[in-house]
Structure formats: C-alpha cells, structure tokens
Lab assay of single mutants.
Amino acid sequence: VSKLITEALSVSQERVGMSLVALKKALAAAGYDVEKNNSRIKLSLKSLVNKGILVQTRGTGASGSFKLS
C-alpha cells in the first residue's frame, strides 16, 4: 500500500499535495480495493509521515493533504 501511495503522490501535480479523498480515488483507479482496505491506507499514511517520507500539509491524523518530502 505504501508503494502505491508514494507512486500516486509522485504523479500528482498539486503544489499543496493530494487530499485523502483524491488519494483514494487515485488508488481506486489503479485497481486497489479502497473500501475493503481503508484502515490499511490510513495506517500506511501515518507510518509514511512518521518515517519522514510524506509531509502532511493540512489536517490531522490520516485526514487532510499529503505530499512527498
């Protein structure tokens, strides 16, 4: 899941990052079952932020906008 998230964010052209909703849409378009794996998406977002791979530009927790650091 982390690999899919970083790939989706690297393609994004948004300056402020990608919102959680837009990220879920991009994952669904890539063929990932978002409804079934919603908790996995949130956990991997939090772990990527803690590792310093992603930066959360808006919001708290697993909601808001994210971009690559």
Rank of each mutant, 00 (worst) to 15 (best):
T57R: 12
S12G: 13
K36W: 01
T6K: 14
E14V: 01
L45C: 03
D33P: 06
N38T: 15
V55Q: 08
S12C: 13
L45A: 01
G52L: 06
L20A: 06
L23E: 02
K24Y: 07
R58W: 08
L23C: 04
Q56H: 15
V55N: 09
A26F: 07
S12I: 14
T60C: 11
K51F: 02
S12L: 13
T60H: 10
G59I: 15
G17T: 08
A26P: 00
L27F: 06
G64F: 11
V21E: 14
S12K: 05
G31R: 05
G17W: 02
I5D: 00
S44W: 03
T57M: 11
T57I: 08
N37G: 10
L68R: 08
G61V: 07
A22M: 09
S12Y: 02
I5V: 05
L45N: 00
S12A: 12
G31C: 05
L20S: 02
S69Y: 15
R40S: 03
V34R: 05
S12R: 02
R40A: 14
K51N: 10
F66H: 05
L23F: 07
L9P: 01
V34T: 11
S10L: 05
K3Y: 01
T60A: 14
S19L: 09
A8H: 04
N37W: 10
T6Y: 05
A22K: 07
S39H: 10
E7N: 09
V34K: 09
G17I: 05
I41L: 09
F66K: 11
K46W: 03
G61T: 11
A26Y: 10
T60D: 15
G61R: 07
K25I: 01
N50T: 13
K51P: 04
V11W: 11
L68G: 11
V34A: 07
Q13W: 02
I53E: 13
I41M: 07
G64L: 14
V16I: 11
L27P: 00
S47N: 08
N37L: 11
K3L: 02
S44R: 07
S12F: 12
S44L: 09
E14H: 04
I5N: 01
S2M: 04
R58H: 11
I41F: 11
G59S: 09
S69R: 08
I53H: 10
S19D: 14
G59H: 08
K51I: 02
L9S: 01
V1M: 07
Y32K: 14
L20P: 00
I53S: 10
K42S: 09
R58F: 09
G52Q: 05
V11A: 13
N50M: 03
K67A: 12
S19H: 05
N37R: 14
L20Q: 02
K42V: 12
A28S: 09
E7K: 09
S47Y: 06
S69N: 11
V21I: 11
S39N: 14
N38P: 07
S44F: 05
K36D: 03
L54S: 11
N38R: 03
L43M: 11
E7G: 00
S39W: 02
S12H: 04
V21S: 13
G52Y: 03
V55A: 09
V49I: 12
Y32W: 09
D33R: 13
L68Q: 04
G61A: 09
A62H: 11
I41Q: 02
M18W: 04
L27Q: 00
A62L: 05
I5Q: 00
K67I: 07
G17H: 09
S39R: 04
V11Y: 12
V34F: 07
V21Y: 06
V55K: 15
I53R: 09
K25Q: 10
V49P: 03
A28G: 09
Q13K: 13
V55G: 14
V16Y: 11
N37H: 14
L45Q: 01
A30G: 07
G64S: 14
L45F: 04
K3I: 01
E7Q: 03
N38I: 07
K46S: 04
A30V: 08
Y32P: 06
A26M: 12
Q13D: 06
F66P: 09
K51Q: 11
L43H: 13
V34D: 04
S39A: 13
G31E: 00
G31Q: 05
S47I: 01
L27Y: 01
R58P: 12
Q13F: 01
L4V: 05
S2R: 14
N50I: 03
S65K: 11
A8E: 01
M18R: 15
F66E: 12
V21P: 06
L45S: 01
A30S: 10
G17K: 15
K36Y: 04
K46D: 04
V34W: 05
V11I: 07
S47D: 11
T57G: 09
L23K: 00
A29T: 12
D33K: 09
K42E: 15
Q13H: 06
L45P: 02
L20Y: 13
S63P: 12
T60L: 09
T60F: 06
F66T: 08
K24C: 01
S65R: 05
N50A: 12
L23D: 00
L20H: 02
R58G: 15
I5Y: 00
T57H: 13
I41K: 02
L45E: 00
L9M: 08
M18S: 13
R15E: 14
L48G: 00
N38S: 14
L23W: 02
A22L: 03
L48H: 00
A29R: 13
G17N: 13
G31S: 05
V49Q: 04
L68A: 07
V55W: 05
Q13L: 04
L68N: 08
K51V: 02
S19M: 08
E35Y: 12
K25V: 01
N38G: 09
V55L: 11
A22H: 08
M18G: 08
L54A: 05
A30N: 05
L45Y: 01
T6C: 07
K36G: 05
S47M: 11
K51G: 04
G59W: 08
G31F: 05
N37T: 02
R15L: 02
L48F: 03
S47L: 06
Q13G: 06
S69H: 02
K25F: 00
A30E: 03
L43S: 13
K24V: 02
G61I: 07
K36H: 03
A29K: 15
S63C: 02
F66Q: 10
Y32M: 15
D33H: 15
G17D: 03
S69F: 11
S2D: 15
E35N: 11
V34M: 09
S63H: 13
V49H: 03
A22S: 14
L27R: 00
L48R: 00
A29M: 10
G59L: 11
R15A: 07
L4S: 13
A8I: 12
R58S: 15
V16Q: 14
A8L: 05
G61D: 14
L54H: 04
F66N: 09
V16N: 14
T57K: 12
L27T: 01
V49A: 04
K42T: 11
G64D: 12
A29S: 12
K24H: 01
R40E: 12
K67M: 11
L43F: 06
S39Q: 14
N50W: 00
D33Y: 15
S69C: 06
S65H: 10
G59Y: 06
V16R: 01
V16P: 03
G64I: 15
V11K: 14
S2N: 14
K67G: 09
I41D: 01
A62Q: 13
L48N: 01
V34L: 06
L20N: 01
A26V: 11
K67H: 08
L68C: 06
K24D: 00
S69Q: 09
G61E: 12
S63Y: 06
E7H: 08
L43D: 14
A30H: 04
L27D: 01
K42G: 07
A29W: 04
L43N: 15
Q13C: 06
I53Q: 13
V1N: 02
V1L: 02
G17M: 05
R40V: 03
A30D: 04
I41P: 03
S47W: 08
V11D: 08
T6E: 09
S39M: 06
E35H: 08
G31L: 05
L9Y: 09
A8M: 07
L68H: 04
T60Q: 12
K36I: 01
G64A: 15
I41H: 03
S10N: 12
I5S: 00
K3R: 05
A29Q: 10
G59M: 08
V21D: 13
N37I: 15
S69W: 15
K46C: 01
S10D: 12
V1A: 09
F66C: 04
L43T: 14
G64E: 14
L45H: 00
K51H: 05
A22D: 09
R58N: 15
D33T: 12
K51D: 04
A22Q: 13
L68M: 10
N50Y: 10
K51A: 07
L23N: 00
K51W: 02
K46M: 06
A29C: 10
R40T: 10
L48D: 03
R58A: 14
S44N: 08
L20R: 02
A28E: 07
A26S: 09
N50F: 00
S12W: 03
K25H: 04
E14L: 01
S44K: 14
I5T: 00
V55F: 09
